[in-house]
Write a protein that binds this DNA or RNA. Structure first.
Length: 200
DNA sequence: CCAAGGATTGGC
DNA sequence: CCAATCCTTGGA
């Protein structure tokens, strides 16, 4: 087991944290059970002007955690059925977080860890129980990984085609060639982008 | 109050 | 390709 990452790790630029989280280990102490996955894919959501970020509407009840201190979990439900886990970064008042999109199963995983919804299900993380938790609180935390981390590839973020030019920022980070990184069908999002454009 | 739609997934 | 499924948001 590696050392737990301190709050200072998260109190840095979101994009740097997102990059550095590749190869680290997300852990959930689920009662007596330890569930853990090695992080292989992340995305940065950075600041109040980021049109892809939940923080674009201000500190709403759902996204308020993003405006709080770094080193906390922001968990939300999407499309009415999946949960996604993020870690809050940067100073209080500046809304930013890193979405953890995929991992390699290590311990106690209940499901595939490929894709953000699957990862939460595998680790037993959900919005109601975990959103807002301090990563130093002993329930959810991130540990130093073991062994070398391979090359990290940057790409635009997934599924945020509505965000205009913000969708083009290369704020997704993937461990190159990793079998557990989420593979997505982008046709749906391309179609949605086309639909938005034609409506304008 | 209510309509619209989403940081997704898996099945057809 | 597209339905599932429900909470959040913002406008009336």
């Amino acid at each position: 087991m590696g050392a737990r990452l301190p709050r200072a790790f998260f109190d840095r630029d979101t994009r740097v944290v997102a990059r550095d989280l590749i190869g680290k280990v997300l852990v959930h102490r689920d009662g007596p059970t330890r569930r853990a996955a090695r992080i292989v894919e992340t995305e940065a959501y950075h600041g109040p002007s980021d049109r892809a970020s939940h923080a674009r509407f201000g500190p709403t009840p759902r996204a308020a955690v993003m405006f709080g201190p770094p080193g906390h979990a922001y968990v939300y439900r999407v499309y009415g059925l999946h949960h996604c886990v993020n870690v809050v970064t940067g100073p209080p008042g500046f809304p930013a977080a890193v979405l953890i999109r995929a991992g390699e199963p290590m311990e106690g995983c209940l499901h595939s860890t490929r894709g953000p919804g699957n990862l939460c299900r595998a680790l037993g993380i959900d919005t109601g129980r975990h959103s807002g938790l301090d990563l130093e609180g002993g329930v959810i935390w991130i540990e130093e990984g073991e062994g070398p981390v391979g090359r990290v590839v940057r790409t635009p973020r997934v599924g945020v085609g509505y965000a205009g030019t913000w969708a083009l920022r290369p704020w997704r980070f993937v461990l190159a060639g990793n079998a557990w990184a989420s593979a997505r069908k982008i046709s749906l999002h391309q179609g949605r982008e086309r639909a938005i454009k034609s409506r304008e």
